[in-house]
Write a protein that binds this DNA or RNA. Structure first.
Length: 116
DNA sequence: ATTCTGACAGCAA
DNA sequence: TTTGCTGCCAGAA
């Protein structure tokens, strides 16, 4: 049961990466869900900030599977081209329309429930 | 140490 | 329904 806020072997960033990398193929989650799972509560913004730095990590972070609570691809501008994120999602069988995941509820993957 | 900003979320108009 | 402001946490200058 992860509850350690600070003073952990893993930084907040690493924790975010760890959870994000565990998102199953063809599934998505939200910043708030990750923040909630990490115990950050309402620090969803920080999660996004961490993913922003994910480009600096040697590991591949499926950040395209992380969207806001509305299922909007708010971070698509950080993938170089605004179409990259959508392409990646559609490649995984996720329908994206108007920068929004259509069947977001079906594809939603909650670390709180799935990962415990 | 202080201030600003951010790939969010929630609520008020 | 859409727009805007506020709260939240962590990092960079």
């Amino acid at each position: 049961m992860p509850r350690q806020k600070s003073k952990n072997n893993e930084d907040f960033f690493s924790s975010v990466y760890n959870v994000t990398m565990q998102i199953p193929y063809g599934r998505v989650t939200s910043y708030g869900a990750i923040a909630s799972y990490l115990g950050a509560g309402s620090s969803a913004r920080t999660v996004g900030w961490a993913l922003n730095a994910s480009h600096n990590t040697p590991e591949f972070i499926p950040a395209h599977r992380v969207v806001n609570r509305n299922g909007l691809l708010t971070g698509k501008f950080h993938f170089g081209n605004t179409t990259t994120m959508q392409q990646l999602l559609e490649n995984e069988g996720i329908i994206v329309e108007n920068d929004r995941i259509v069947n977001f509820v079906e594809k939603f993957w909650d670390p709180l429930s799935e990962l415990s």
